[in-house]
């Protein structure tokens, strides 16, 4: 994960940072601009060489660290991600689109040509792939930072870790641990609110449960998630209806880890019961 220090451009000055966009809403790369207080400090440590959202001035590659936002949804994306990888020493995919295919991966469970025929006046102008896929499905990725959108403090942590050649402190455990560290009362147990926290990757600081709302898994699955058991308990004990369960499993991270499998099995059951 932490690259050989010899790879980091030192003799030529600061490491070069690039920010790339694929199919996405730009929210994750905006979190870099949201850094505000830390942005100048970051600019002192790295050369922001390619970041179209911030500047049209472009430095040529290769780049020491590339932040890649968005999923792969077009034939052009497929070619371009290869070029990005070739120019990047350390590639970090940021956000649910890049790490899991994003909300647009819902197309993977339907017929995209049907969508284009309904949405566009000239669907024949639309060059799009049948599936939306994460960056890791196309090129090797050095680190994945989950979230929709990502947490800017975690992004700074990943960049700091890269600059200082150490492992990033990005825990893969559940949102529940973040709740418990904050002393939050469990919305599931104490209020009967369906919450995805037990199977969701930490990183947001338990934002929704801190405001007495259930987590809806925008950070995607934690390591070793047991979505089957969670969905079973929601249905059996919390009386959650099937549509709500599917909506929670099938949103920003529908393709990620076991979410895909669970979503498919719920779909099958839904079809059977209707």
């Amino acid at each position: 994960m932490v690259p050989d220090p010899r790879l980091i451009a030192t003799e030529k000055g600061k490491p070069k940072l690039a920010v790339w966009k694929f199919t996405s809403c730009d929210g994750c790369q905006l979190s870099l601009l949201d850094c505000e207080d830390e942005l100048l400090l970051l600019a002192e440590e790295v050369e922001i060489a390619y970041f179209l959202e911030a500047s049209s001035k472009v430095e040529e590659g290769p780049y020491d660290i590339s932040l890649v936002e968005g999923s792969i949804t077009t034939p052009d994306d497929v070619q371009r991600i290869q070029k990005v990888r070739k120019q990047s020493r350390f590639l970090v995919s940021i956000g649910a689109c890049a790490t899991a295919g994003g909300i647009q991966s819902l197309r993977n469970f339907a017929d995209v040509t049907e969508f284009t025929s309904v949405v566009y006046a000239r669907p024949d102008y639309i060059a799009t792939l049948k599936d939306s896929t994460p960056i890791s499905a196309h090129v090797p990725v050095d680190f994945e930072l989950q979230g929709c959108p990502i947490n800017k403090l975690q992004l700074l942590e990943v960049i700091s870790a890269f600059l200082n050649q150490r492992a990033p402190q990005v825990s893969a455990h559940s949102v529940c641990i973040e709740c418990k560290l904050k002393g939050n009362v469990c919305v599931w147990v104490a209020h009967g609110t369906p919450c995805m926290g037990p199977i969701t990757h930490a990183g947001c600081g338990a934002l929704c449960p801190s405001y007495n709302r259930g987590c809806y898994a925008c950070y995607g699955p934690k390591e070793n998630p047991n979505g089957e058991s969670l969905c079973h308990w929601w249905a059996e004990k919390l009386g959650t209806d099937k549509a709500t369960i599917i909506e929670n499993i099938r949103n920003y991270n529908a393709l990620a880890g076991s979410f895909k499998k669970i979503g498919e099995s719920l779909e099958v059951n839904k079809k059977r019961t209707t």
Partner: peptide
Amino acid sequence: TTDLSGENAERWERWDSCFTS
């Protein structure tokens, strides 16, 4: 953790659990 400059570092203690990887 370190800051971006690498000049300052901190060590924090945090509750952990045998249920994590």
